[in-house]
Amino acid sequence: MVSSEHNTIQNRAHYDALYSKLSIDGLLRKLERLDAFLADATATDTSWVCMYQDHFKDRLQGAKVLELGCGDCTNAAVMAALGAQVYANDISDQSGVLIKALNAQADFDYPIQYYQGDFLNLTIDETDFDFVIGKAFVHHLTHEQELAFLDKIVRLLHPEGEVRYVEPAINSAFLDALRWMVPVPGRPSSLQVSRFRAWKALDPHPDRDNSGAHYKRVGQQYFKDVLIVPIGALERFNRLFPKAKWNRAFRRKAYHWERFLPSFLRYRWARTQTIVYRYPKSQL
């Protein structure tokens, strides 16, 4: 099993290299056409569909938000443009470079505040956050780190605050095995045994439980209200025809069609899940 310390080092190296290739030009273009960007992304792209469901956009004006694993900073920039007071954290130095450039060139009501480094080792002076959020970052943590994060988060949240994660959903061993068989850019098929083994050795994701049941069980240790919303039971099949002109149209329709599936199929087949924790137990 990978140690938590080694996992952090591996993630930092991976994302420093990845984000060093980014510039804010694309981010600024998205902010210039924010309404159109959000209308498309929150209807089509899974992580945005998940994060922005339940009128999340409308709840951001003036809200105090801590984003963990802010990565390429797109979501941090969007929330700031929507009027939120955004505090962003990532282990990558390069995320901080992007935040600095954004603050210099974008017209935010509240400049984004950046915390660089391992969240568990940082002193966060602010408290009473309305939201602590993360898009696809928890599955980069070991189970030990995940619990330590939640222990710290509950001390930073407002008594009626909310944690909102978007994470992969691994609720079917069969579908998970099929997923590994389908190659995607940067990742070979598991059927290409030697290439897959070499890729896996460099993969920054630890082996861990990413099922809805796991997130529900963990959340109930710290929060009174836990909601797991599986998404992408049909949308996931868009990966079978990634270059089709109608791919994005299929994805938008798939989110609608899957509502008619029985709940156990939506859960078993889900590609992604929104995880919502409310009302920290330590503050009740």
Rank of each mutant, 00 (worst) to 15 (best):
V138C: 12
H139Q: 12
H140M: 10
L141Q: 14
H143W: 05
Q145R: 09
Q145N: 09
E146R: 11
A148N: 06
A148Y: 01
K152M: 09
I153S: 11
I153W: 08
I153V: 15
V154K: 08
P159C: 08
P159R: 10
G161L: 01
V163R: 00
R164S: 13
R164W: 05
Y165K: 01
P168V: 00
P168G: 08
P168D: 01
A169H: 03
A169V: 06
F174N: 00
F174A: 14
D176Y: 15
D176E: 15
L178Q: 15
R179L: 12
M181A: 15
V184K: 12
V184S: 10
P185N: 13
P185F: 11
G186C: 11
G186K: 13
R187E: 13
P188S: 09
S189L: 06
S190T: 07
L191Q: 12
Q192A: 12
S194C: 01
F196I: 05
F196L: 02
R197G: 05
A198G: 07
W199C: 04
W199H: 10
A201Y: 01
L202A: 14
D203H: 11
D207P: 04
N210M: 13
A213F: 00
A213R: 03
H214R: 14
K216Q: 14
K216P: 04
R217S: 13
R217H: 09
R217C: 07
V218R: 04
G219H: 07
G219F: 02
Q220G: 09
Q221Y: 02
F223K: 07
F223M: 08
K224F: 05
D225I: 08
V226C: 11
L227G: 04
L227R: 15
I228L: 06
V229P: 01
V229H: 12
V229F: 08
V229Q: 14
P230R: 09
P230H: 12
I231S: 08
A233P: 03
A233L: 11
L234E: 02
